[in-house]
């Protein structure tokens, strides 16, 4: 599904990703871990098309299409979803109108008729239930005055509504208490299927207790330096990252 080859990218002349390779197939969950400053969030930014990031080398293909050539909205329409580390508050834009606009623009891109108000409402109710999202928040301004946990849960609700092929969760666990973490994880697990894939960026192994990955990658200094199964996360939790850095150097 996703094929990243020798990706070099950075911000304002500063190279952050230095030759990253990653293959993701449908149905897989990939965890990306690594020390601060390794480039984890930069990878999420580059994949979703955040302005300011410049790709200097390499390629990113999504089902044979060149992702790097696309605008952020076209990437989303092709099935890329980024759950933000810090979801943005936009006062005056209602959560529900925002989602309706997003879904209908995506449908138009695929040549589909927009949802009727009724269809949309039914779908929204179904997904709210699925990911345990508070109905009261749906009608509020987008993320305005939401707690940290509510913002993250809203990201998962959007994920449920938009049904992307590839979902990137950028430190979705940061700032969550244990209950919110469980709810968020339950939501993600319900959304997993053999047709979609997840890239989960996290600092901590804790999230991976709930969302069990197929692969764990360690990102250090802009490159993936080690790949393993879910047990690698446990090892990292215990030993930290230094041993891998040393291993990588030697």
């Amino acid at each position: 599904m996703l094929s990243i080859k020798n990706l070099h990218a950075g911000v304002e002349e500063k190279e952050i990703l230095k030759g990253l390779n990653l293959e993701v197939k449908p149905g897989e969950v990939h965890a990306i871990m690594g020390p601060n400053g390794a480039g984890k969030s930069s990878l999420a930014s580059v994949l979703s098309g955040r302005p300011n990031y410049e790709v200097t080398e390499g390629s990113v293909m999504l089902d044979g299409k060149d992702l790097l050539e696309m605008s952020p909205e076209d990437r989303a329409r092709e099935g890329v979803f980024l759950a933000f580390q810090y979801p943005i508050e936009i006062p005056g834009v209602s959560n529900i109108n925002f989602l309706k606009t997003a879904m209908n623009e995506m449908r138009a891109y695929k040549g589909l008729e927009p949802y009727t108000a009724k269809e949309f409402l039914a779908l929204s109710k179904e997904k709210q239930k699925l990911v345990e999202f508070d109905a009261k928040l749906v009608n509020r301004s987008l993320n305005e005055g939401f707690s940290g946990g509510e913002k993250k849960r809203n990201e998962i609700f959007q994920l449920a509504m938009l049904e992307p092929k590839l979902a990137i969760l950028d430190e979705t666990d940061s700032g969550l208490d244990i209950d919110a973490l469980r709810i968020v994880s339950r939501g993600v697990n319900k959304l997993r299927s053999d047709k979609n894939a997840f890239i989960i960026i996290t600092h901590y192994q804790r999230l991976l207790d709930y969302i069990v990955p197929d692969f764990v990658h360690v990102l250090s200094d802009g490159k993936i330096v080690k790949t393993g199964g879910k047990e690698l996360a446990l090892e990292l939790e215990e030993k930290g990252y230094d041993w891998i850095k040393e291993e990588a150097v030697s």
Partner: peptide, 17 residues
Amino acid sequence: FYLQSRGISEQTAKNMM
């Protein structure tokens, strides 16, 4: 960018904002 990352065109996103 947040709006665009949800599939909303730049123009619509600006209108919304």
